[in-house]
Design a protein around this nucleic acid. Structure first.
Lengths: 250, 250
DNA sequence: CGACGGGTTGACTGGATTCAAGCCACGTGG
DNA sequence: CCACGTGGCTTGAATCCAGTCAACCCGTCG
């Protein structure tokens, strides 16, 4: 199996961890950013830089034993689970600076697959050792726990939104968040590049690919966006107004 | 305002924290269960037992400053947020042994209201002090972080389910989980008591009250349940088969 | 008593799914 | 080079599930 081989290669590809994070677009979001000298050094020893993963490569699999959490340096990954009836269902996307694998804490195994969507570098952080270090660094401890708390809150938010809002609003909100992330990273372009396939996005938004497609064309005819290419959209209007008030199309 | 007064009374009602948790139905689920002597004692000093809250009493409000997390001793509470357009939306229910308020970690304020659904006793655990203690007890630290990880995983699961499944399956799954919780607590009865109002449950399942009502009557005519009273359902068939495979009504 | 809020029921509507066909870019092999 | 197949995506028509709006029931409380 070509795919399996590729995954194997990806898994075995380890990079010297002392390369000083030169692939990292997310240094300031790193758990170890700005720690005391000694703890910071221990942290850097702990972390395993891994990559590059290519689109489709598996970082870990559902029911693999849980050992590490992963910090995204560059690229983009998706987390998905396989439901009883065999359909895959995307439960999250992770961008540079995000921590993936937190949902494995408290279980013996990961509850999702983690799969790269494009060329991706990540930091593997062994969980047990991280906990040890947290015990010796209140700063690291509180930072880590806060990240988990923010994740919980984020889930709650997303959930609340996803529930009652119509398809178009869900898509708009997703694009808006992606665009906001770009802005925070210094971009000024109205272009939004979708790192994931449309079907992944549809699954994430709990839409069928057909519905997503229809929504995007409708948004184009309504002048909200312009489909520049398969993976790139250009925002034509600020979406904030639409999203601030829920569905009021006054 | 009658309601406000009631809330005030509830807020101010403090109980001596050394009463040895005699209201607690959840000792074994407690963060401090089975800790070393000294840490356990510090933990007990830290915890503020509070109650009784009555149905409708507020434990904390959205945008109150975040200071503590709350462990449910007995009773049941809901967490809800108010959306921009003023509708309330229930994002979770908490039962004895559950930790509420975790979504406030990482923010300055709570993102939800926490409201009692019936007579409820809780333990207030100041967050800063808990972190301190975690720094001195690896056991407590890992236990706390594991609870957060389980919360994240739970959210992911619920979310995945809630998204694509039809109303009837969502309701079945909810009843099943409630019943499972009862079984784990030693109950053998097929009766399931709903601690929350139907509209809260509907909101949580992202249904309208009308749809929930229809689903429940349909489930009764199909022989799955029997509506014994407003708040009590009797399970007639095991729901596992229906939930294992998704919608196959063979 | 009458007002009220929670809950149920009914008829209708609409948005998203389903099923089916078609399009387009891509790679493969003749 | 072109025919062909494939996978991701789009488009169209029919269906269905849940939402909406309205009426009604019922227990509670002033």
């Amino acid at each position: 199996m070509t795919n399996q081989e590729k995954n194997c290669r990806a898994r075995l590809h380890l990079v010297d961890s002392h390369r000083q994070c030169q692939h990292c677009q997310a240094e300031k979001l790193c758990l170890s950013f700005g720690l005391d000298q000694s703890i910071g050094a221990e942290m850097r020893d702990l972390i395993q830089e891994r990559g590059p993963f290519q689109a489709g490569d598996t970082i870990y699999r559902q029911s693999d034993p849980f050992r590490s959490i992963y910090s995204i340096q560059s690229g983009c990954v998706k987390a998905e689970t396989v439901t009883v009836d065999g359909r895959a269902s995307v439960v999250g996307f992770f961008h540079p600076g995000d921590l993936a694998g937190l949902d494995g804490i408290g279980s013996k195994t990961y509850p999702t697959d983690l799969i790269a969507l494009e060329t991706t570098w990540i930091c593997e952080i062994p969980y047990k050792e991280l906990l040890d270090l947290c015990g010796h660094s209140p700063k690291l401890q509180s930072r880590f726990i806060e990240r988990m708390g923010m994740t919980i809150q984020q889930h709650e938010q997303d959930w609340k939104v996803l529930r009652s809002d119509p398809a178009e609003i869900r898509v708009m909100r997703f694009l808006y968040q992606l665009h906001e992330r770009n802005r925070r990273n210094g971009s000024t372009s109205p272009r939004v590049k979708l790192p994931m396939a449309k079907q992944d996005l549809a699954s994430y938004l709990s839409l069928t690919p057909e519905s997503l497609s229809r929504v995007l064309t409708r948004m184009q005819t309504d002048g909200y966006i312009l489909k520049e290419s398969q993976r790139v959209l250009v925002l034509q209007k600020s979406l904030e107004d639409e999203l601030g008030l829920p569905v009021s199309r006054s």
